[in-house]
């Protein structure tokens, strides 16, 4: 009888400690995603949920059906969302803390795109690329006339 009471006491102490720990434990912080200038091609809420499907269907279009004029291009994503060091060097978007890596680390989804694709935009004028970075960014912005369609939040709030 006494032994049982002892076990009960120990268990309730453990339970109490657990409750105290749980009360002090803060939820995992939401990732802080670096913001890009300008407007995204679709609202942030849509991009958050569908960017993988968009990229997947558009990659068929681009690689197999010659449809490079679509605005949903990975190169466009990279051109807008790349951050630069103080000295102006582009930081790969899949580097820790950068645009792609931040969310993908948070949700624990492996990011495979940049095993093949460049994670920094083209350096203007280097190796005879077709367009400078500015031109690529401009090409993927939503036309001014269409921006109002996304309501007060703007077209994705530039995320």
């Amino acid at each position: 009888m006494r032994a049982r009471a002892g076990v009960l006491a120990v268990l309730s102490v453990i339970l109490a400690l657990g409750l105290v720990w749980a009360a002090h434990r803060r939820p995992v912080a939401m990732p802080v995603v670096p913001r890009a200038p300008g407007h995204c091609v679709l609202p942030t809420a849509v991009m958050l949920r569908t960017h993988m499907m968009l990229l997947r269907s558009v990659r068929e279009e681009i690689v197999r059906h010659d449809a490079r004029d679509t605005r949903f291009r990975l190169t466009g994503c990279v051109a807008c969302h790349v951050e630069h060091t103080a000295s102006g060097q582009p930081i790969p978007v899949n580097a820790p803390g950068q645009f792609c890596a931040t969310c993908h680390t948070y949700v624990g989804v492996h990011l495979d795109c940049f095993a093949c694709h460049a994670a920094v935009p083209e350096t203007p004028g280097k190796f005879g690329g077709l367009r400078g970075q500015g031109a690529v960014q401009a090409a993927f912005r939503i036309p001014r006339a269409l921006r109002g369609r996304f309501g007060a939040s703007g077209a994705g709030g530039g995320r």
């Binding site: 091609v41 679709l42 849509v46 968009l54 269907s57 558009v58 279009e61 681009i62 059906h65 010659d66 449809a67 490079r68 004029d69 679509t70 605005r71 949903f72």
Partner: peptide, 10 residues
């Protein structure tokens, strides 16, 4: 959104 995708025609 759908129109934007379909615009990419060869």
């Amino acid at each position: 959104a759908r129109d934007l995708v379909l615009k990419g025609q060869h």
